[in-house]
Design a protein around this nucleic acid. Structure first.
Length: 409
RNA sequence: GGAGGAGUACCCAAGUGGCUAAAGGGGACGGACUGUAAAUCCGUUAGCUGAUGCUUUCGCUGGUUCAAAUCCAGCCUCCUCCA
């Protein structure tokens, strides 16, 4: 079997590694237990997390054992890395709930049977720590002078950093130590912003256990225009289909910047690299084919083939006039509403396409609203039963946003 | 604990009594061009309203004034320096 390290390297996941040669050798000769931490700050994982999940999947496919560590304890503090301000504190109840959602989502991607992967929650050991004991055993090994030189703290010094958050690094380091001692975990993986936090644990284990463990980070997924992958202006792309419908996920990926196509294919799909390279090198309008493949493949991994097909069909029918409909986002409304007729501005708000009448009016005035391919020109237009064909109409906002209204009987 | 400084719309940031729903930039949205891309250009960007107009907004609460984001008082939050 090929060495997973080579695969991760070839596909461009890896950013920094400690002792590259040794780690590669280790991964090549024995199953390695490794962990990735997820802070439970929301009730769903995001597309940003997905790259980490991909790494875990690759590793597991090569016989290594992933530990998905839910940060039920560390989230109570909040990682200050990359944050300009202290995070809002979440209650334990919310964090517990979030952790349970993560657990469910992760089990769709990893095989947790027969101990092939583990899911742990650091609340289980962090919450019972005794402060004084912790300081004596762990705190003594951390130099404040050194910690302050880390980037993640450096810029916080200007804006204010509480001791509370400063302690985050110790907790994460302790996690690694705990997993090493109890599960033989020898490798921690994380986003490149986690490098210093990971090294904290790495050094702690070296000091306390005289053993060598490894750290590996991968590049944070950003788009060519510099945004964090999976963050759009209108919100985060979630992995939970109730928060981000498969169609929206598909569209998000379908609209990938040309420059990112090859990178995303490599990082977010399992397509062979020859195929990735071939698709990535398509020129001009041809590259749209690569974008379709990207959108389809990722949607398939996250939501399953059936949903991916539906999303693709919906996209084709909306953009290319194909006959099949697939899963277009829709709202069902009572027939009575349309017997009287409803103002277009109200309708837009009702189905969630706009937030206020002013916004709707602007859109109409600028020619941004279309109903069944007919441009709406008057903000006081009324939509009535006569406008419906087969009990439905298709509202188009701007170029790319579609929403179907169906009549409920 | 003491001394200074700051808090303006999604973000950055001007504005220091009326002409300010609040310059400028970014972002976002709509249009044109295109390939559901990028770049570029035009427009829009508090709410209600067909329009005139009305209502709410400049950390919070009161006050002065015909009139305040702008002046005064108290409070809250953050930052810097000293202890």
């Amino acid at each position: 079997m090929s060495n997973v390290y080579d695969i991760l390297k070839e596909r461009g996941y890896i950013d920094q590694v400690t002792y590259e040669d040794e780690l590669k050798e280790l991964l090549g000769k024995e199953p390695v237990t490794f962990y990735i931490g997820f802070d439970a700050t929301a009730d769903s994982l995001t597309l940003g997390h997905f790259i980490q999940i991909m790494v875990m999947m690759h590793m597991q496919q090569h016989g290594h054992r992933p530990i998905a560590l839910i940060g039920g304890g560390t989230t109570l503090i909040g990682d200050p890395t990359g944050k300009s301000e202290m995070r809002k504190l979440l209650t334990k109840e919310i964090i517990d709930y979030n952790a349970s959602r993560f657990k469910e989502q992760l089990s769709r991607f990893l095989d947790f049977s027969e101990g092939k992967a583990l899911m742990l929650n650091n609340a289980d050991w962090l919450l019972n720590l005794n402060y004084v004991d912790f300081m004596r055993e762990i705190g003594i090994h951390f130099s404040v002078n050194r910690m302050l030189t880390f980037d993640c703290y450096k810029n916080r010094l200007e804006r204010g950093l509480t001791f509370f958050e400063f302690g985050y690094m110790l907790m994460q380091s302790y996690d690694f130590l705990y997993l090493y001692r109890n599960y033989g975990c020898k490798l921690q993986v994380g986003g490149s912003d986690q490098w210093s936090n990971i090294l904290g644990g790495y050094e702690l284990i070296r000091k306390l256990e005289q053993d060598k463990v490894y750290a590996m980070t991968f590049k944070l997924l950003t788009t060519a225009s510099g945004k964090k992958m999976g963050k759009t202006e209108s919100g985060t792309i979630w992995l939970d289909p109730n928060k981000t419908p498969p169609y929206d996920l598909y569209q998000y990926l379908r609209n990938t910047d040309d420059r990112d196509v090859e990178k995303f294919l490599s990082l977010l799909t399992f397509l062979p690299m020859e195929e990735v390279k071939r698709l990535g090198s398509l020129e001009g309008a041809e590259i749209n084919k690569a974008k379709e493949v990207l959108a389809f493949e990722v949607t398939k991994i996250i939501h399953g083939e059936e949903e991916a097909i539906k999303a693709q069909k919906a996209a084709k029918s909306l953009f290319y006039g194909a006959k099949e409909e697939g899963s277009i986002p829709f709202t069902e409304m009572d027939k009575s509403v349309f017997e009287e007729g409803i103002g277009i501005l109200d309708l837009l708000r009702e189905v969630g396409l706009t937030k206020s009448n002013s916004e709707g009016r602007r859109l109409v005035e600028q020619g941004g609203i279309t109903i069944d391919d007919v441009k709406v020109t008057a903000p006081d237009m009324k939509v009535t039963l006569a406008d419906f064909k087969d009990g439905k109409i298709l509202i188009r906002k701007g170029k790319k946003v579609f929403h179907q209204v169906r009549i409920k009987n």
